[in-house]
Design a protein around this nucleic acid. Structure first.
Lengths: 252, 252
DNA sequence: CTGCGGCCTCCCGCGACGTGAGGGTCAAGC
DNA sequence: GCTTGACCCTCACGTCGCGGGAGGCCGCAG
């Protein structure tokens, strides 16, 4: 018994060549061969294939998948949890994109068109490398730093794009509040600051209010980061710092 | 004025090499070059880039993207509508996957594990080529056929997987109703039949009740299709046909 | 006038397969 | 028992979407 390549391929919606390829690179070796050399896939092989396809669909490279699946310290429950989390992230990102499209349609109806900058919002205008530097320079060697390293090592390029998208939205929210004259220590600006903190906690490390205040300082004093905000609006970096401080104070 | 490659790359979260590549293949040519041969991107170029990245993220090949973007008969509104629709599909698919993961977790908690077949459900076990044949043999030359051709030509591989996933769910629903003894002309079976019809209408062509009845017949008489159902459960093909007929009758 | 970062054009490489070529295998039907 | 056709095998080269480096020009800062 066991399934042939053709059966498995039809079953899983992939090609025979793909199965050959996975065999070649050792990602999915059929647990048996017939006397004539035919590949015979067992139920457990199918199980593994299903996992492979799952992670592949989420944009992982085959090498990464091999690492994930062959990690002996991972029980099936952890696996399922991570899969669910990955899906939720992806869905969130797509929904952000859908919302952006809706905004664009709305704008069209109202008769004005978005600037290219605004349209790029959903793709983010944030540089992950700068972010890595930020984390490293300021918090290198600390717990938070290690935590961030461990987490971000798992992120795919698509994750990074999701992250930059979210970061872009936060930045835009700051810019809007600033432009409309909302006070930095007001409810609105503090709300955005809290979103910013949540963003970091979600993707990188547990960002306490203390750490957040440190970051806020740096956005003003470090020209690289200041430029990132000043490019959007003059005075925005200070505004962000003040909002972050006010938000930290009220949670203290 | 205009933006340099480096600026655009940082802005859009891609590499300079990617922009060179898009220039090379003619997907995104900067509208100007400086005296020294530097690429200069205008706001309209950025606009196009944003579109390119959008469709790329949804799995379209660069060639397909070029076709879509260069189609002169497409106004921006159609564009936005399609983007929104594509996103909704993709989100739907991911949500189906998330639900499958949840089911798997649930099953684990309850102490039983799914068979490999069940786990593959979400990936579908449906053969698009057979489907194409079905459509062609039976309805070749008709309006519905042409409609289907036009639509399915636009589908990407990922779309096909979404389609097969949905088809697999419908099949599973039929199988469950059948296994639990629900009558073919009962509410439950007819409901599934209606889902089946909606599935075809959504992805291929406007499947009227008449056409649906024709398909139901074929599922029994054509051994290729019959096998697809009989493989799951003996007598399932006839059950499906009867459910389809009953559903058509009540909508007549 | 000398760095130094940014830009240019080649051009080779890679991941994840697609696509035959050339040939063995196996159940079915005559 | 022999052909036929669907299915399988192993090479091996092709494709797509870039990555990354070599070798060289541009432009502004000091």
């Amino acid at each position: 018994m066991g399934y042939s390549v053709g059966q498995v391929a039809r079953f899983a919606g992939i090609t025979v060549r793909t199965l050959h390829h996975y065999d070649e690179i050792g990602l999915l070796r059929p647990s048996e061969r017939s006397a004539a050399g035919y590949r015979r896939y067992s139920d457990r092989d199918l199980d593994r294939l299903q996992q492979v396809l799952f992670y592949r669909e989420l944009g992982f490279s085959l090498e990464e998948i091999a690492v994930i699946l062959d990690d002996p310290g991972e029980d099936p429950v952890t696996h399922l949890r991570r899969q669910h989390e990955l899906l939720r992230r992806r869905i969130g990102r797509l929904e952000a994109m859908a919302a952006a499209v809706e905004r664009a349609m709305e704008a069209r109806k109202m008769g004005f068109s978005l600037t290219p900058q605004e349209r790029f919002e959903v793709f983010g205008d944030f540089d992950p490398e700068q972010y890595a530097e930020e984390t490293e320079e300021r918090w290198g060697g600390t717990d938070a730093f290690e935590q961030s390293r461990r987490r971000s090592a798992r992120y795919t390029r698509d994750d990074w794009r999701a992250i930059t998208a979210e970061a872009g939205e936060v930045l835009q929210a700051f810019a809007a509040a600033f432009a409309e004259g909302a006070p930095a220590d007001g409810e609105r600006a503090m709300g955005v600051a809290e979103r910013h903190r949540a963003h970091i906690t979600r993707w990188f490390y547990d960002c306490t209010y203390e750490i957040h205040k440190g970051l806020g300082e740096m956005y003003v004093t470090d020209p690289r980061f200041a430029a990132n905000y000043e490019r959007v609006a003059e005075g925005l970096s200070r505004y962000v710092r003040d909002a972050v401080h006010a938000n930290a104070a009220r949670h203290a």
